[in-house]
Design a protein around this nucleic acid. Structure first.
Lengths: 157, 157
DNA sequence: ATTGATGCAAAAGATTTGCAAACTG
DNA sequence: CAGTTTGCAAATCTTTTGCATCAAT
């Protein structure tokens, strides 16, 4: 498969995701505007962790008719809807990542270089559920972050 | 044991903790000022999770000669020294708890009433270590928060 | 005395909000 | 058209910073 073919496939997948989000939103009775579509497209197209401001810039690059306020408002909406997930980076900031077509995972955050590694451990998830159940707590979401040094930074020490 | 006797004991313990923090700080070469002592006393005396602003108010109630800036600066110092630990509440805010004489634990945060429950699970800790080791990551600290509804709020639904 | 710590008020960074105008269904 | 959503700028909220003054060692 050529590079462009691969990219085309990825674009197609993303388009499908955007359409899925659109119908979900419409079902909720909210209006599907030009800026909501753009913000959703850019958010889903970004396979990294992005900040709100960063997302604003990426959107404005494609269409300057988007405001910061709308990015924040839409991001909150997408988070509510479970399309994106926000995570505190521990330094007062907040980053987002899209969830669609992406199974749940936790994060390791490198304190030196800022790299974010994703990982997943089913047993961890199960024990969290058990701990919550034992206390009558109903988990809606969770956040597990390990802070420390990534392999590269340890070797560079 | 009478109530006052119990309180007296707790106060004594706290005083010892404050003295321990003082010597640790002095060993680090920083000066032990009136405001640092006060802030440390109040922080260690608070067995709940408190915000920076809240701590400021509690301190000023005992002695108005403390400024917001100093509370923030001291809190950062105490966090560095491992005396208190900060945790993002997921809503942009930050809360602290003291660590001295308090074994490590994780948190469940109620999204409705804001209650914070503490819990601990050794197996959870072990699996986090294992997951990190498998990826060459060195954990310095971690944060596990379960967001959802506490028992009381579920029943109130 | 020296040098670090404090208070104040201003600055900064991130996010939210009021409101008139623009747009969607 | 009615009712949402947007853009803008001002307002919030939390935390940080510059700098003259104060105080611990």
């Amino acid at each position: 498969m050529t590079r462009t073919a691969r990219n085309a496939n990825r674009d197609d997948t993303r388009d499908l995701e955007v359409v899925a989000v659109e119908s979900a939103m419409r079902r909720l009775g909210v209006r599907w505007t030009r800026q909501r579509r753009l913000i959703t497209e850019v958010a889903l197209g970004n396979h990294d962790h992005f900040g709100a401001e960063e997302l604003l810039v990426l959107c404005q690059r494609r269409d300057p008719r988007v405001s910061r306020a709308t990015v924040y408002r839409t991001l909150a909406m997408l988070e509510q809807a479970g399309v994106v997930e926000g995570l505190d980076t521990g330094d007062g900031g907040r980053k987002f990542e899209h969830v669609v077509g992406h199974e749940h995972h936790d994060h390791m955050v490198c304190r030196r270089c800022g790299a974010i590694l994703e990982f997943r451990d089913d047993e961890l998830e199960r024990r969290q559920e058990a701990a919550a159940a034992a206390r009558g707590f109903l988990i809606q979401s969770h956040s597990l972050k390990l802070f420390g040094l990534c392999r590269a930074c340890r070797e560079r020490e």
